[in-house]
Design a binder for these strands. Structure first.
Length: 899
RNA sequence: GGGAGUAUAGCUCAGCUGGUUCAGAGCAUCUGCCUUACAAGCAGAGGGUCAUAGGUUCGAAUCCUGUUACUCCCACCA
């Protein structure tokens, strides 16, 4: 066979991916085997692959491929998420470029554009996953807005409404003025920002007289215009909505204000001074302006003190007519302008610098969220917290790393109701139908799957017995995207629409979930809720939380920093296998990962190593008539044991999701143990044939190694596996059986470690004396104590090119010498030996050993140690003592001999 | 403000219930080698008061307490 010197990754990748899909190796159907199931965290349908996806999906693919090879019926279900806000924003943006405004379109027209966009850009990310080698069952590709999923969402909404768990309520919610929709509390991220505290003068209303109360520490402001109080605020633009000023009743500074009224600056509205212990006396001036319509805390104050609510903002964040001033201006502009106007009016005392935390939309980082009072749909979360907490606390679901259990519990124990409605069109439209009502009358609605059913329900409402279907007004709002994602593990198997069907029974609960900790609340927790609610069982057994991919300086990867490499380019540069390895090499279990291109290089170098080992083995000619060399026989026995031990260790690591470590383990197995030790032990001399038995064993080992490596680096392993032996059409490493860990002899492995030590020392002597490998040496062994272990001598002979390797009774003078275990080794080099140098070395070792002996003796002479420590520990120390004494004796003899 | 986590070699990390995996791995560095599988390589070497101060113990990287630094999550004082 003609083997190219270089491995052509690109050709191999497309060839084998096609081969796998052509043979439907990724497909899964329920059968008699045990299932292994992963559902993909659905990426945004219009998204592109980033480094986080690379990591996440590499891990999922490793788990899936390994399970498949372990004999499970492995299924990895792919799909995409409609990502309501993000996608709608993109579509709006695109339309804006064409001069089309969303508000000029009907819902149907807009959705037509949105679907076009989805068809055009959707699925790119799935193609990219294919390049990564993802072994998803593509025939099952789902979309959160496809028919089955949509139907599931509707059914669940109606069901939860009927159970009384979904309700409609007027609440202070987080409003995104750019997307013009409400957000859930989880969708708001707070950022520290350099801001200002504006100190504003609120004059006491005309006619009010001030009498100091005489309280110690009282602060009364007065100027030529009268008495005034100072309010510190970060948001002067909201003063038009002020309906009270609030002080702490215990605040000594402001006792004089009690019971008075003050005038809102510029607006000139007279508002009461109210008292509430909520106000922090120490913060700012201790005076708080209360704007019930635009701050959650102020709203709560307004409720207790029965304050008027003046909403001064339009949905887009501009000032509404109710604000009276600055009508039509954007809130941020108003903030600047009002500061100037206040100053000019002498109403601004000062401006202080202040670090403030401002909420932003998670999906829309440049627009500050505005607290706003409006009517929305909510899901009662108390019930869901109650059913979702036990499975995690009891260990029915395991989190890796475990620390997230705390995070999870904390969230569930302090949960707030979930605002599930969004003022968007791209999404699942809420199946609620409003009944016609008179102006000012309370709203009435029914919830049903179809307009027809809604009409039936409406007819049962008193006074609506005769309305027609046209009079029903369906709610314009869509549902939060996560309201469909939370059903994912159930809806993918149609478990909502067709409970108890064959697929849901077989695949549910799924096995592992791989995702980022950033969506533990958004998604993981809610899937557990939905799973428990609808399947009465957990949606998955294990959740593996990946870290966040950072650059090597520890910064988050972001578009704006430009420190995020393009995954596709990486795969082209380092090969897909190389990048997969690179991702995994830097992902410690439970920590963030500091990504560096160097790691992909290391990965690519590894595939090259495999390729070269393959070239070596495949280059051998086999002669069944020559006897098997002793060295080969022993090396095979050793490697067999080594392999079994490693396989056992590997199994353990996978149980604990220690994937990065597992890769390092097999990396070393292949590179060090197999290539450097095993192959060098069995390698025939140049252009000499290899015996049949050794060849067969070597191929078998190689085979197994490839199989073990396949989940990590699927392409090169398939390529080499296919070439290593004649394979039948339709065979593939990805459906081969994963080698099982057999028994192994720990003692034998330890003995071989000594062998490595001896070989290394002889190599050192060669190097020190400039002796080429071609030049053969003689080596003599002298037993110091115990039994002589010559089991692997043939291996030593082979590695070190020894012409003679014998056991002798007495020391040899004037030879290079070293001690390993209980044997002294002598290598006569004639006059080449440098006595001075040798003595120096031996003396140094002698000194060290004596020091070591002293420390052991000290320990053993400590009676408290001897009596307190377990017998086994004491025995070990005694053994150390004996070994050291023996070694000292041997060294002393050698030194004497040299002299 | 509440909580969680981390601190071990230049870098990234292992080191579980204290004692032979006790000071380790990979990468990087340095020194030899173009030795017919592989220079994208081979053979070696150096490098750490285990953040810090105490404590428990015969014995601590490991357990406990304090301190410091960093990271993350939650809450949100205008």
């Amino acid at each position: 066979m003609d083997i190219p010197a270089k491995y052509d990754a690109a050709a191999s990748e497309s060839k084998w991916y096609k081969y796998w899909t052509d043979n439907n190796f990724f497909g899964s159907k329920p059968d008699g085997r045990k299932p292994y199931t992963i559902v993909i965290p659905p990426p945004n349908v219009t998204g592109v692959l980033h480094m986080g996806h690379m990591l996440n999906n590499t891990i999922q693919d490793i788990l899936t491929r390994r399970a498949r090879m372990k004999g499970f019926n492995a299924l990895w279900v792919p799909g995409t998420d409609h990502a309501s806000i993000a996608t709608e924003a993109k579509v709006v943006q695109k339309l804006a470029k064409q001069g089309i405004k969303k508000r000029d379109l009907t819902r149907e027209q807009f959705l037509k554009y949105a679907w076009e966009w989805k068809e055009e850009h959707g699925g790119v990310i799935l193609e990219q996953l294919k390049k990564l080698g993802a072994s998803c069952d593509w025939s099952r590709t789902a979309f959160t807005m496809d028919d089955l999923r949509s139907e599931s969402v509707m059914k669940v909404f109606v069901d939860l409404y009927n159970k009384g768990l979904i309700y409609r309520g007027l609440r202070m919610v987080n409003w995104d003025p750019k997307a013009q929709t409400v957000l859930s509390t989880e969708e708001v991220i707070y950022r520290e920002e350099k801001s200002h505290l504006y100190h504003l003068k609120y004059y006491i209303a005309e006619g009010e007289t001030i009498t100091p109360t005489g309280t110690e520490g009282e602060v009364i402001h007065k100027d030529d215009k009268g008495y005034y109080a100072v309010v510190a605020t970060t948001r002067p633009e909201t003063i038009m909505g002020d309906t009270a000023m609030c002080i702490n009743p215990k605040d000594p500074k402001h006792q004089w204000l009690r019971g008075h009224k003050v005038i809102v600056p510029l607006v000139n509205r007279v508002i009461p001074v109210i008292e509430d212990r909520y106000v922090d006396i120490e913060f700012g001036t201790g005076c708080l302006k209360v704007t019930p319509a635009h701050d959650a805390n102020d709203y709560a104050l307004g409720q207790t003190h029965n304050l008027e609510v003046i909403d001064i903002f339009n949905p887009d964040g501009t000032i509404a007519p109710a604000g009276q001033l600055y009508v039509g201006m954007d809130r941020m502009e108003v903030r600047k302008q009002i500061a100037i106007d206040l100053k000019n009016a002498g109403l601004l005392e000062k401006i202080e610098d202040y670090d403030n935390k401002v909420g932003y939309s998670e999906r829309n980082a440049d627009t500050a969220v505005e607290p706003r009072l409006c009517k929305q749909w909510f899901l009662n979360m108390k019930h869901f917290a109650d059913i979702a907490l036990p499975p995690v606390l009891e260990g029915k679901i395991k989190f890796y790393p475990n620390k997230y259990v705390n995070t999870y519990r904390n969230w569930l124990e302090n949960i707030q109701d979930w605002c599930i409605s969004r003022q968007l069109w791209w999404g699942h439209r809420i199946p609620a139908y409003f009944l016609p009502t008179a102006e000012g009358e309370e709203e009435k609605y029914v919830v049903a799957l179809t307009p027809e059913e809604a009409l039936e329900l409406a007819h049962k409402v008193k006074g609506y017995e005769n309305i027609t279907i046209d009079q029903l007004q369906r709610d314009e709002d869509a549902l939060d995207t996560w309201f469909s994602s939370w059903l994912w593990p159930v809806s993918l198997f149609n478990g909502i629409n067709q409970p108890g069907n064959e697929e849901i029974k077989y695949y549910y609960p799924t096995t592992d979930l791989v995702t980022g900790p950033d969506i533990i609340f958004f998604w993981v927790a809610r899937m557990i809720m939905a799973g428990e609610e609808y399947m009465k069982d957990v949606p998955f057994r294990n959740v593996y939380f990946t870290g966040i991919v950072r650059d090597k300086l520890g910064r988050k990867m972001s578009k704006s920093l430009g420190n995020s490499p393009d995954p596709i380019e990486l795969m082209e540069k380092y090969s897909t296998d190389g990048v997969r390895m690179g991702m995994l090499l830097c992902s410690p279990a439970g920590g963030d990962l500091l990504y560096d291109d160097e790691l992909c290089l290391q990965g690519r170098n590894f595939t090259n190593k495999i390729w070269n080992a393959f070239r070596l083995v495949k280059g051998w000619s086999v002669d069944d008539n020559i006897p098997q060399p002793e060295a080969s026989k022993k090396a095979i026995e050793w490697f067999e044991n080594k392999l079994n031990k490693t396989l056992a260790e590997l199994d353990k690591m996978f149980v604990d999701f220690r994937l990065s470590e597992s890769l390092m383990l097999v990396y070393k197995l292949f590179w060090d143990e197999f290539s450097s030790w095993y192959l060098e032990s069995v390698k025939p001399a140049y252009q000499q044939p290899i015996d049949g038995a050794t060849y067969k064993a070597t191929i078998a080992f190689f085979d197994k190694l490839l199989e073990v490596l396949h989940p990590y680096i699927p392409f090169i392993t398939e390529e080499v596996w296919q070439l290593l032996e004649t394979r039948k059409q339709g065979e593939s490493i990805m459906v081969a059986q994963m080698p099982e860990a057999g028994s192994y002899d720990e003692k034998l492995l330890e003995r071989f470690e000594t062998v490595k030590d001896v070989i290394a020392k002889i190599r050192q002597i060669r190097q020190d004396n400039g002796l080429a490998q071609k030049e053969s040496l003689e080596c003599f062994a002298k037993l110091v104590d115990g039994d002589y272990d010559d089991y692997f001598n043939a291996v030593i002979t082979k590695h070190c090119n020894l012409a003679k390797f014998e056991l002798i009774p007495a020391a040899i003078d004037g030879a290079k010498t070293f001690v390993a275990k209980n044997v002294e080794y002598y290598i006569p080099l004639g006059d080449k030996i440098d006595k001075e140098e040798e003595l120096k070395k031996l003396n140094a070792e002698l000194d060290y050993t004596r020091g070591f002996l002293a420390s052991v003796e000290k320990k053993l002479s400590n009676e408290r140690f001897v009596s307190g420590a377990p017998a086994a520990v004491v025995d070990r120390e005694k053994q150390k003592l004996a070994d050291a004494k023996m070694k000292i004796e041997a060294l002393e003899k050698q030194i004497a001999g040299l002299k």
